[in-house]
């Protein structure tokens, strides 16, 4: 099967097992440029594994993933890493900011991994932090900022490379509803203005409501809810 026309990233028949557990059992996925797609499902359903496969972090046992016409599953680790550095951005629930770097250094990190000079990288990082309203935290370390602020720093970091695709795994999982919504607002606004597509893994409906479309994963199988309506 070929990818749906116009899609940025499409996956077909993904299967992945970890020992005796089947995490993905023929999952499908597609996302268009600039689209925000929520991936929902009960815990242990395989939604995080789906995200990891789509982002090229994990290679599925079988199935195909095409990103911008390129097959992800046959790429080498180095190629996929390069792709993640340059085209993708990531926000996780927690444990993602390097505790010993300052916030602005954390945001600048992906640019520096791509070889941007330190000064320039930090200037760009500061601009993004401003958009996410955390520029006043630039010189603080992650340990000194609140959870919501930390997540906004993480969002800035995910967007600093101007990625075409942003992967967010429970980005508000550790936040209260007010902070969570603020992060979601800023994240989706920023992504939309940068025309970045977002794959948003969440189990919260109110977070998923920030998406354009919803996929539900159950027992390793995906279901595109759009087609039901």
């Amino acid at each position: 099967m070929t990818a749906p026309p116009g899609s940025l990233l499409a996956a077909h028949g993904l299967r992945k097992t970890y020992g005796p557990t089947t995490a993905l059992d023929g999952a499908e996925f597609s996302i268009h440029p600039g689209e925000v797609v929520a991936v929902m499902g009960p815990s242990g359903s395989g939604k995080s594994t789906l995200l990891h496969c789509l982002a090229g972090i994990v290679t599925p046992d079988s199935g195909s993933i095409t990103y911008d016409g390129r097959e992800l599953t046959t790429m080498s680790d180095a190629e996929r890493s390069a792709l993640r550095r340059s085209e993708f951005g990531f926000v996780f629930q927690f444990g993602q900011l390097v505790p010993e770097l300052t916030c602005v250094e954390n945001v600048a990190l992906p640019l520096r991994l791509n070889g941007t000079a330190r000064k320039e990288a930090e200037r760009a990082a500061l601009a993004w932090m401003e958009r996410l309203e955390v520029d006043d935290l630039a010189r603080k370390r992650p340990g000194e900022v609140s959870g919501g602020q930390g997540q906004r720093v993480a969002v800035a970091r995910a967007l600093v490379t101007n990625p075409r695709l942003l992967f967010a795994d429970e980005p508000t999982g550790a936040l209260d509803s007010l902070n969570g919504e603020r992060v979601m607002e800023l994240l989706t606004d920023a992504a939309r203005s940068a025309n970045a597509a977002v794959v948003l893994v969440t189990h919260e409906a109110r977070v998923a409501a920030y998406s354009d479309r919803e996929i539900v994963v159950r027992d390793g199988k995906s279901r595109d809810m759009e087609r039901l309506v």
Partner: peptide, 16 residues
Amino acid sequence: RRLLSALVAFGTRRRT
């Protein structure tokens, strides 16, 4: 461990 995995996710080279 978790931090390392996150760094790998956004494409940090093993060499780095």
